[in-house]
Each structure stands twice: as structure tokens, then as C-alpha cells.
Measured scan of single mutants.
Amino acid sequence: KRCPSCQAPIEKNEGCLHMTCAKCNHGFCWRCLKSWKPNHKD
């Protein structure tokens, strides 16, 4: 998949759905690609 903010390629190996892009530091949900918020729901 690609970061929804900067389009950098992102690879997920394991862990939770909260992802942070290493290039732009954007926090997002791996499943729905929406911005991550404390009360995030898919």
C-alpha cells in the first residue's frame, strides 16, 4: 500500500493497524487508510 498523505510505499509485516509513515510521519489506519485518531473506528 501507499501512504495516503505522501504516497510513499508502506509495507506491513505484523502488529496493529495504526501505521506511521517513515517518510512524512503521517499516522493512519492500515485497513481503511484514514487518518488515525484516538477513537478511530473502521
Rank of each mutant, 00 (worst) to 15 (best):
K1H: 03
K1C: 00
K1F: 01
K1A: 00
K1E: 02
K1D: 05
K1V: 03
R2E: 14
R2G: 14
R2H: 13
R2P: 07
R2A: 13
R2Y: 14
C3G: 02
C3F: 03
C3D: 11
C3V: 04
C3Y: 04
C3Q: 00
C3M: 08
P4C: 14
P4M: 09
P4R: 03
P4L: 12
P4I: 11
P4V: 13
S5G: 15
S5D: 08
S5N: 15
S5K: 15
C6K: 02
C6T: 04
C6E: 05
C6D: 09
C6R: 01
C6I: 03
C6Y: 02
C6H: 06
Q7C: 11
Q7N: 00
Q7E: 13
Q7T: 09
Q7V: 07
Q7K: 15
Q7W: 09
A8G: 11
A8H: 14
A8Y: 11
A8I: 04
A8D: 05
A8V: 06
P9V: 05
P9I: 02
P9W: 15
P9H: 05
P9D: 05
P9T: 09
P9M: 12
I10P: 02
I10R: 02
I10H: 02
I10G: 05
I10K: 01
E11H: 08
E11C: 02
E11F: 13
E11R: 02
E11T: 08
E11W: 10
E11S: 03
E11N: 00
K12S: 09
K12Q: 11
K12D: 06
K12E: 10
K12T: 10
K12F: 03
K12N: 12
K12I: 02
K12H: 08
N13G: 10
N13K: 13
N13R: 10
N13F: 04
N13A: 10
N13P: 14
N13D: 07
N13Q: 10
E14H: 02
E14R: 04
E14Y: 12
E14A: 11
E14S: 10
E14P: 11
G15I: 15
G15R: 09
G15A: 11
G15D: 06
G15T: 01
G15E: 12
G15Q: 01
C16P: 13
C16S: 15
C16I: 15
C16W: 08
C16F: 08
C16R: 14
L17C: 07
L17T: 06
L17E: 11
L17G: 10
L17P: 10
L17M: 10
H18K: 15
H18L: 09
H18S: 06
H18V: 04
H18C: 03
H18M: 13
M19E: 07
M19L: 10
M19H: 03
M19Q: 11
M19F: 02
M19R: 05
M19D: 12
T20W: 07
T20Q: 10
T20V: 15
T20C: 03
T20F: 03
T20K: 12
C21R: 00
C21A: 03
C21N: 03
C21W: 00
C21F: 00
A22S: 07
A22P: 13
A22H: 04
A22W: 09
A22Q: 00
A22R: 06
K23L: 05
K23S: 07
K23H: 06
K23P: 01
K23T: 09
K23N: 07
C24V: 02
C24H: 04
C24D: 10
C24R: 01
N25G: 14
N25F: 06
N25S: 12
N25H: 03
N25A: 08
N25M: 10
H26L: 03
H26N: 05
H26I: 04
H26A: 11
G27I: 09
G27Q: 15
G27H: 15
G27P: 08
G27V: 13
G27M: 06
G27E: 15
G27D: 14
G27C: 12
G27F: 02
F28P: 12
F28I: 04
F28E: 09
F28H: 15
C29V: 00
C29R: 00
C29G: 01
C29Y: 00
C29M: 00
W30R: 06
W30S: 09
W30E: 11
W30F: 08
W30P: 13
W30M: 06
W30I: 06
R31W: 10
R31L: 13
R31V: 13
R31P: 07
R31D: 13
R31Y: 14
R31G: 13
R31K: 15
R31M: 10
C32M: 02
C32W: 01
C32F: 01
C32L: 00
C32Q: 01
C32K: 01
C32T: 02
C32H: 00
L33Y: 02
L33R: 03
L33F: 03
K34R: 06
K34W: 01
K34N: 02
K34D: 04
K34F: 04
S35M: 12
S35N: 09
S35W: 06
S35A: 12
S35T: 12
S35K: 08
S35F: 14
S35P: 15
W36C: 04
W36K: 13
W36D: 14
W36H: 11
W36T: 13
K37D: 15
K37E: 14
K37Y: 10
K37G: 13
K37T: 13
K37P: 10
K37F: 07
K37C: 12
P38G: 10
P38D: 02
P38C: 01
N39F: 14
N39D: 14
N39M: 08
N39R: 10
N39P: 12
N39C: 09
H40K: 05
H40Y: 03
H40F: 09
H40L: 06
H40T: 04
K41V: 14
K41P: 15
K41E: 14
K41R: 08
D42R: 00
D42A: 09
D42N: 15
D42F: 01
D42E: 09
